[in-house]
Amino acid sequence: MLADAQAVAREAVARILESASGALKARGVFRWVLAGGGTPRLAYELLVQANRDWRGWQFYLGDERCLPPDDPERNSRMLDQALFRQAAIEQEQIHMIPAQLGAETGAAVYAETIRNSLPFDLVLLGLGEDGHTASLFPGHEYAPDALVVPVHDAPKPPPDRISLGYGALSSARQLLFLVNGTGKHPALSAWRAGKDIPPARIAAEDVQVLADQAAANG
């Protein structure tokens, strides 16, 4: 348990750098899945200040909204502003979800993009107030072994999205959840209690949760 969102972001950066160092030493490449949201954005901004060598880093995305590429609500837009431009990441290192193609087509294309990159070294995830993670929502069924899934009728706009599926997430070497704010306390408590929400369906071996006091204690 950490003090606040700033502390969560700082600890996330430390663990990202640790994971990157281990992957680069072992395999010469660090394949990292990024998340959208305010706390991840803060972590990316701190990471740009902490890291100067991006050779060997490959960037992927956990989920995306089916909107035009220049829409400000796209996760890729936030990542471009907070990380890619600031760190001068080369375009060939960036593998964003082509959600502008529509949920089904974009999901199929991205599944082929990531197929030969699995398992990911690190996947960064958040936890929604309703218990969703990436764009996997409670009450929706997704094939348990799917690498990437089209999402329709999402309970928050836009309704159409694309998300990494349980197959890709469960195979990851490490999952790192960033959870902060009192609004996340019920979902975090439900997960701890063993409720059937999407994070509980991810069968990865190394799952770490960084939560602030508000999320942990409500």
Score class of each variant (00 low, 15 high):
130 D>F: 10
42 L>M: 15
77 R>F: 01
203 A>D: 12
94 I>Y: 09
30 F>V: 07
116 N>A: 15
190 A>N: 11
55 R>D: 08
110 Y>R: 13
179 V>E: 05
160 D>C: 10
160 D>P: 11
59 F>N: 09
185 H>G: 11
117 S>E: 09
4 D>C: 14
10 R>K: 13
192 R>Y: 05
82 A>R: 01
164 L>K: 06
45 E>V: 06
146 A>W: 02
9 A>E: 05
163 S>I: 10
70 D>I: 03
12 A>L: 01
95 H>K: 05
199 P>S: 01
139 G>H: 04
113 T>Y: 00
44 Y>K: 07
81 Q>K: 07
25 K>W: 04
31 R>E: 05
124 L>A: 10
208 Q>R: 14
26 A>G: 01
198 P>T: 03
113 T>R: 04
200 A>R: 15
178 L>H: 00
44 Y>A: 06
14 A>L: 01
77 R>M: 04
216 A>C: 08
82 A>S: 11
25 K>F: 08
153 D>P: 02
24 L>I: 07
194 G>P: 12
109 V>H: 07
201 R>G: 08
74 R>M: 05
129 E>L: 06
57 W>K: 04
94 I>L: 14
61 L>N: 07
161 R>A: 07
43 A>Y: 12
53 D>M: 00
77 R>L: 01
86 Q>S: 14
56 G>K: 02
31 R>V: 05
148 V>S: 05
83 L>T: 06
4 D>F: 10
214 A>P: 00
171 S>R: 13
121 D>Q: 09
156 K>V: 13
168 A>I: 06
118 L>E: 09
178 L>S: 02
6 Q>I: 05
48 V>H: 12
147 L>D: 13
73 E>Y: 02
131 G>H: 04
118 L>F: 11
135 S>M: 07
213 Q>N: 12
4 D>M: 08
130 D>H: 12
123 V>L: 02
66 C>T: 06
40 P>L: 10
39 T>A: 03
147 L>A: 12
65 R>Q: 04
